[in-house]
Design a binder for these strands. Structure first.
Length: 802
DNA sequence: TTTAGCGCGGTTTTT
DNA sequence: CCGCGCTAAA
């Protein structure tokens, strides 16, 4: 036991130690970037199990990403294996052979962690639903079975679109299904029902959304399906409704841990609270005698409010979970403020930046590392020279190494659209790179097709999947046929699948077209015979063969179809792996995994390559060198955020996240001109964030390569037309130029009627009138098609042009 | 029933 | 510029 304690405790600082030793009651750990929060989490779980003899069966550990869950699981495994190493071999972990280490990890995995629930919100609660969903009846009488399908964004989009245009006969142009889906999703994430929405409705549009929500829900139930949001919302309703179920999970999960608590939404919060409170509501205080809730988060890294995450939940934690004893010894807040990742210059820059936000928990990250290098500002002509400047930097920093180490570099951007130019530059210089995000493995067409077959076999009510595959491969079943059958199904109130199997009705309604349908149902009924006794891997194999999907691919013989076949083989491998990892190897479970897995964690990347990703994707990661690109008003911060303070603060947090990813070097780049989507070249204004980092922490640099020479190399003549002769104040004096823009033209520049200027949001404009005088002037500016605005020159993001 | 061609719109997105 | 959804024609 003492050995255990050493393992778990001796590498921790004071605050981490306090967190790790916490056992009962509520605890909020405010963990700044790079302060060792995963360490605190994993060591605490290990200490619960090893130090306090708590059964892993009673622990629930929730993360937001598969990656975080995997990481936590892995590290926990090693910690417990280290303990075991002492008991079994009597020697420290590091002296063991790798094969013994792996053996121990396997032991721990199978014997100690089998019953520990650790995973994402969505995967854990879909698991809960596979147990208990049949015990839930909606107030409207809607029901689901444990074979429910999980609809991804595309599937649910299809359903909403159908409801808007067909069910409700609305014009999809006035009622954009995407927008409506987003509003419904927002409601679901805030734990609101369609009735709640109806009560809150202020106008007809709101009422329509509420109605669409209601119908969408009915439709999901008819399909025996749930969308991502339902995986959390339905458990809330279930636990509220059913005392026995709630009591069961309450008694089971005595110790709850939540990672990235600042990213929780109302629904997730309700869920956590229901399990923690159990069967004894209403009540004011929780009974912490034999239980705990331990949440870790950082309000400064809250960057998902557009998905209804609400960091005020984190700020309210202590109030929400307070104990009846109101004493000072009951400390329910610990701050981890020592940063082990970044140089102190980088941290100073990040701290200065984030201090411009008003809504925060006060917290200053303290460096444990040396000052290090200054941050570097790369002021570039345009997006091409920005990309070139970055690749140049990467190359030159690597020249000092015999073997280039590409994996030490990350290039971060606000929008995916920015990645292309960067890629082109990396390709040109033959620098290996890995781009994150993009198409998920499970979003590929052939994968979705195969999965859809599996879904229909398990859940014949799933019409979205059914209609996806009914004519894939081609069976000559067209739109009109499907429409007729759908009508029949609705009129008789018989599931579509049963209509398809009723040969007589088919003959009567669609006549000769029933041939294709019969072909389809024959295949499906044949496959159904195998459902009982086959695992997902074998089923997939059978599906691909018997449906003719595979032979269809083979006959086309293109390179693309070759790729598809490989992907399908990959899918079967994943199913096999699932069967090996889980004892039951059940199809429903595999389908959940397939729906909830992004391949960021599974795909094999070139281990030594430059990383390209969005700033959002970079959260939780770290790199030696980080490039933050496109620091321009309207791009970063994005144009949608620029005049809404709360949104601008979120952009600032995003920038903070980006900077704090870096261990050694940060490069901040902006382009003086940029074309987005190949449109017009637009003059830009440097990002306000650049002006919020102290000048003495930034080193300005003139990029070596201008965009024009590159363009000539590429023979892109039409691009070379663009000015190179224009003397560039930013290139000559990058820092000063940036600062000048924000020190306020009212000090340096006196405006006169007729001056032309550029506004970051409204674009080019001309002063048509000046109100007031001296320091207190306002400008009336006419912006082409955007109309006229009255601006305060000291505040408005404007730049003088001519 | 299928496919080619045009027009429109295009932050970020753990699941 | 690129990917989509819809319409027109084969």
């Amino acid at each position: 036991m003492h050995q255990t304690n050493n393992f778990l405790f001796n590498s921790l600082n004071n605050q981490q130690l306090q967190a790790v030793k916490h056992v009962y009651g509520p605890l909020l750990v405010v963990a700044g970037a790079g302060s060792g929060k995963t360490k605190a989490l994993t060591h605490r779980i290990a200490n619960l199990i090893e130090g306090n003899s708590i059964d892993p069966y009673n622990i629930l550990a929730v993360t937001f990403t598969n990656k975080a869950a995997k990481e936590m699981k892995g590290r926990l495994e090693v910690l417990l294996a280290q303990e075991l190493a002492f008991n079994q071999f009597g020697q420290p972990w590091t002296t063991l052979k790798e094969i013994d280490q792996n053996q121990l990890r396997t032991n721990v995995h199978q014997e100690r962690l089998q019953n520990l629930w650790i995973g994402t919100f969505h995967s854990l609660f879909s698991r809960l639903l596979r147990y208990d969903i049949e015990k839930y009846t909606d107030p409207e009488g809607l029901k689901w079975t444990r074979q429910f399908s999980i609809y991804d964004e595309t599937d649910s989009q299809t359903l909403v679109k159908e409801i808007i245009s067909q069910d409700m006969s609305l014009d999809p142009k006035r009622y954009d299904p995407k927008k409506i889906k987003r509003l419904i999703s927002n409601a679901k994430n805030q734990c609101l029902t369609s009735n709640d929405l109806l009560e809150k409705a202020e106008n007809n549009f709101d009422k329509t959304v509420a109605e669409a929500y209601k119908r969408y829900r009915i439709s999901l139930s008819k399909n025996n399906s749930l969308d991502f949001d339902d995986l959390l919302l339905l458990p809330v309703f279930l636990l509220r409704q059913n005392d026995i179920v709630r009591d069961y999970w309450h008694k089971r999960f005595k110790h709850i841990l939540v990672d990235e608590y600042q990213d929780t939404n109302r629904t997730q919060y309700e869920l956590i609270k229901l399990i923690t409170a159990g069967n004894t509501e209403p009540k004011k205080f929780f009974n912490w005698e034999d239980r705990s809730i331990f949440v870790v988060g950082d309000a400064d890294q809250s960057i998902y409010s557009f998905r209804a995450a609400d960091f005020r939940i984190l700020i309210g934690f202590q109030e929400d979970f307070k104990t009846s004893i109101n004493d000072d010894t009951n400390s329910s807040l610990i701050k981890l403020e020592e940063n082990y990742r970044s140089s102190s210059n980088i941290l100073d820059a990040a701290n200065s930046l984030i201090e411009n936000n008003s809504e925060r928990i006060d917290k200053v990250l303290k460096a444990t590392k040396e000052k290090g290098e200054l941050l570097t500002l790369l002021s570039c002509d345009d997006e091409i020279s920005e990309a070139e400047a970055i690749t140049n930097k990467i190359k030159s920093l690597n020249n000092y190494n015999q073997n280039p180490i590409w994996k030490n570099f990350a290039i971060l951007y606000r929008t995916r659209a920015q990645s292309r130019v960067l890629e082109e530059s990396l390709v040109r210089w033959r620098i290996p790179y890995t781009i994150f995000g993009g198409l998920r493995f499970y979003d590929r067409r052939e994968i979705k097709d195969a999965i859809a077959y599996l879904k229909v076999l398990v859940n014949s009510s799933d019409n979205v999947s059914l209609l996806r595959i009914i004519n894939v491969p081609r069976r000559g079943i067209g739109k009109t046929t499907i429409q007729k059958l759908n009508e029949l199904s609705n009129r008789l109130n018989i599931p579509l699948w049963e209509v398809l199997n009723d040969k007589q009705s088919l003959e009567e309604t669609i006549g000769r077209s029933s041939k294709g349908i019969n072909k389809f149902t024959e295949v499906m009924n044949d496959l159904l015979c195998y459902l009982e006794n086959s695992g997902p891997a074998q089923l997939l194999q059978l599906i691909l063969e018997k449906s003719g999907y595979l032979s269809d691919l083979l006959s086309s013989g293109t390179e693309e179809s070759e790729d598809r076949r490989n992907n399908l083989q990959e899918l079967i491998n994943a199913a096999t792996q699932y069967e090996e990892e889980t004892e039951s190897g059940d199809v429903e479970g595999f389908l959940s995994t397939a729906a909830l897995t992004t391949d960021n964690d599974t795909k094999k990347n070139n281990p030594n390559s430059v990383t390209l990703m969005t700033l959002h994707n970079s959260k939780g990661l770290e790199f030696q060198n980080v490039f933050i690109t496109g620091l321009e008003q309207g791009l970063f911060p994005s144009h949608r955020s620029i005049d809404t303070p709360s949104l601008l603060e979120e952009e600032r947090r995003l920038c903070y996240v980006g900077i704090t990813r870096a261990k050694e070097r940060v490069f901040l780049s902006h382009a003086r001109e940029r074309r987005l989507w190949g449109g017009m070249r637009e003059a830009t204004i440097p990002s306000i964030f650049l002006s919020e980092i102290p000048e003495d922490l930034i080193d300005g640099e003139l990029p070596q390569t201008g965009g024009a020479s590159i363009r000539r190399d590429l023979h892109l003549d039409r691009l070379t037309r663009v000015d190179r002769n224009n003397p560039n104040e930013f290139v000559n004096k990058p820092i000063n130029a940036v600062r000048k823009l924000y020190s306020g033209p009212s000090k340096g520049k006196s405006w006169i009627v007729g001056d032309k200027l550029i506004h970051s949001k409204f674009g080019k404009g001309e002063i048509i009138h000046i109100f007031g005088s001296g320091e207190k002037i306002s400008l009336a500016v006419k912006f082409g098609d955007k109309g006229s605005k009255i601006l305060d020159p000291r505040l408005a993001p404007i730049r003088y042009v001519s």
